[in-house]
């Protein structure tokens, strides 16, 4: 097996610090009055950054060959996005029906 992972021990613990910092920030923002839409966007952005850090650094995805990266990103995130894209409009349709 070829080892592409050339990520240092220090990088893992810096990543750990960033992940904790982001989690703390999310909790602080949760207690802060903010427009709902802005809050959702900020939370989703922070969640995406955390997920990218874990997959990229801890799971060594950033050190893997592009083919493997694409397999994961396309396979998981694009398929997931299609799933969400298909069901979310229907949820709004039912909400509208219930509101009538």
């Amino acid at each position: 097996m070829t080892d592409h992972a050339d990520i240092g021990l220090k990088t893992y613990w810096v990543t750990w610090g960033i992940l904790l910092g982001l989690t703390l920030l999310m909790i602080v923002l949760d207690q802060t009055p903010m427009a709902r839409q802005l809050f959702v966007v900020v939370m989703l952005a922070a969640m995406s950054v955390k997920a990218t850090l874990i997959a990229g650094t801890f799971m060594h995805l950033r050190a893997e060959r592009l083919a493997l990266m694409l397999m994961v990103v396309v396979g998981l995130f694009v398929t997931g996005a299609i799933l969400f894209g298909l069901i979310v409009p229907d949820a709004f349709r039912i909400l509208e029906m219930n509101s009538r």
Binding site: G80, L83, F84, I87, V88, A91, L95
Partner: peptide, 16 residues
């Protein structure tokens, strides 16, 4: 993707 299904279903239920 299984978890995406759970979260998608959750989002669906939550929205409606």
């Amino acid at each position: 993707l299984l978890f995406a299904g759970f979260l998608g279903g959750y989002g669906y239920a939550r929205t409606m």
